[in-house]
């Protein structure tokens, strides 16, 4: 018997799958001629990456976001979320993957105007399997993390743009998703509020969260660790 025998069988060290992975994924809309919104593209976003996708209007950014957010299906190729193939997944399975793996931040915030900030944040815990007893504590922690502890009982309509987007970020991260998908997160904000939201993204990234930000603003995109350009449906990583 040797010392090595005492260690037991070696654990299988399988490679950790990327959080997002496009394998030749394309999206084509029917028409005459068909519209190629996204040409076959490969993209790998690893855990903890901070990636920005830049491109002008009509370049295919929203199509890419819809595919990555499982709101749409590729017409060709495969999309793996956390290593799980999704191209053939059913509606229920895709909803479950969205609930458990993805947090969305929208340009127009999309907070529910009649609900308080806390209730808005709690919304995301309804579908992601967060135990009922933990929901409020998690929501309060998320709001504290984005610096909105003093606004929990306010309705979104009385908040500033920056505060609304922070509330939306709190809603996106409360269920501890694997990736945060942000669609033009600073599109409706002034420069000061934009800076504060981008600082918040930096903090979240530093905390280990994977971020994918879609923007047409170079100032926003340069904050990311990796940059991808999309133009006319073609995806290209910027060195």
């Amino acid at each position: 018997m040797t010392v090595l025998d005492l260690l037991g069988p070696a654990e299988s060290l399988e490679p950790v799958p990327p959080v997002l992975e496009l394998r030749g994924a394309a999206r084509q809309f029917p028409g005459d001629p068909p519209v190629h919104a996204l040409h076959p593209a490969d993209l790998v976003v690893g855990s903890g990456d901070y990636l920005s996708v830049v491109g002008p209007s009509g370049s295919g950014k929203s199509t890419l976001l819809n595919l990555l957010g499982l709101l749409d299906k590729p017409t060709d190729g495969e999309y793996l979320l956390d290593g799980i193939p999704t191209a053939g997944a059913g509606e229920r399975e895709r909803a479950a993957l969205r609930a458990g793996h993805i947090g969305f931040v929208f340009q127009a915030f999309h907070l529910m105007p009649h609900r308080t900030v806390l209730e808005n944040v709690l919304l995301a815990t309804l579908y992601s399997g967060v135990p009922r007893a933990e929901r409020r504590d998690r929501a309060l922690a998320a709001l504290d993390r984005v610096g909105l502890s003093h606004r929990i009982d306010f309705v979104p309509t009385v908040l500033s743009g920056g505060e609304r987007q922070r509330a939306a970020v709190a809603r996106a991260v409360v269920a501890q998703p694997r990736v945060l998908l942000a669609d033009e997160p600073t599109g409706n904000l002034d420069s000061e509020s934009s800076a504060s939201v981008l600082d918040l993204f930096d903090e979240l990234h530093a905390g280990g969260l994977t971020l994918l930000v879609i923007t047409h603003d170079d100032e926003v995109s340069v904050r990311a660790q990796r940059r991808v350009r999309i133009a006319d449906g073609y995806l290209q990583e910027i060195a």
Binding site: R92, L123, L126
Partner: peptide
């Protein structure tokens, strides 16, 4: 409609 869309994006199934 928007609220329903948001709920769906956060994982609400169509059944729900």
């Amino acid at each position: 409609i928007r609220e329903i869309g948001i709920r769906r994006s956060f994982g609400a199934t169509s059944g729900r």
